[in-house]
């Protein structure tokens, strides 16, 4: 007990020395709201961020619309990684985001995917329409759902497929519907299946839908928190970009 107490005192003393000098940069935390599709990549980036800077990134996941609604109601998030460009822009317009802080951190790609190894062969799978149900994310709230509709429209199959569409509340749910076989196939995010080769898939060519620009923005609540600013600059750095690409996203080099 004695030894423990003295060690505690020693620890306190050493902390007292360290705290004023470097702690502000060492032990800070940033609360990040993350669009559901970016879940796995965000976890990997947060781990790398911690290893690199010592800052902790606390991640909250949800659909972009849901997170945005929470931000407008005073949620304590400091950084917002959305699945679209519209919501961060709106955040700045409505005074929740910091002017000029928004940038595209990833470009999402959609894949037509089935657990059946023979079902998806390309656009012709959609044209043939030999299936019962096709899953997409809710196009009203999820940019991946909008992209799926655009791709089907571009291929002139939307009208014929419409009765077969089932909507997940977000892209994670669209994935569940396909994964459990309830829908034979569906449009999911490449990032959700980038780490395996299960089933059959067709990476939809990017000229069939508007690029899914996923923007990040610093929220007013995070202004002045060094960890929040460090997280955003880390997100633009080479280490994060490599992770983002590994998880199946494009990155806009011109940025």
């Amino acid at each position: 007990m004695q030894a423990f107490l003295s060690r505690l005192k020693l620890l306190a003393a050493s902390l007292a020395i360290v705290v004023p000098s470097a702690s502000a940069a060492l032990a800070d935390q940033v609360k990040v709201a993350v669009a559901a599709n970016f879940t796995e990549a965000a976890k990997a980036i947060a781990a790398a961020f911690k290893a690199d800077t010592g800052h902790e990134a606390a991640l909250s996941f949800g659909s972009t619309g849901q997170l945005y609604a929470q931000i407008t109601q005073g949620a304590p998030f400091e950084v917002f990684l959305a699945a679209d460009a519209a919501r961060p822009e709106k955040a700045v317009e409505e005074g929740f985001g910091v002017q000029g802080s928004a940038f595209t951190y990833a470009i999402g790609k959609i894949v037509l995917w089935s657990t059946d190894p023979n079902l998806v062969t390309g656009a012709q799978t959609l044209q043939a329409g030999r299936f019962d149900k096709i899953a997409i994310a809710n196009p009203g709230t999820a940019p991946y759902g909008t992209a799926a509709i655009e791709a089907m429209s571009a291929l002139n199959v939307y009208d014929s497929l419409q009765p077969k569409i089932v909507q997940g509340a977000n892209i994670a749910q669209a994935y569940q519907f396909v994964k459990t076989g309830n829908a034979e196939l569906g449009f999911v995010a490449l990032s959700q299946i980038a780490d395996n080769t299960d089933g059959s898939r067709w990476v939809v060519s990017d000229d069939l839908y508007d690029p899914i620009r996923q923007d990040a923005v610093l929220l007013k609540t995070g202004q002045g928190n060094p960890a929040a600013e460090a997280f955003l600059s880390f997100l633009k750095g080479a280490a994060a970009v490599a992770l983002i690409e590994k998880f199946g996203y494009g990155v806009d080099i011109a940025e």
Binding site: G65, A135, N138, V166, A169
Partner: peptide, 26 residues
């Protein structure tokens, strides 16, 4: 309902899910 419904109007899109959609789409 959200998890097994697939949000199909007239088939599985019940009131609570409709409210959720309205909130999410602002």
């Amino acid at each position: 309902v959200l998890m097994i419904g697939g949000n199909i109007p007239g088939e599985t899109k019940v009131l609570s899910v409709a409210i959720y959609d309205f909130v999410e789409t602002l």
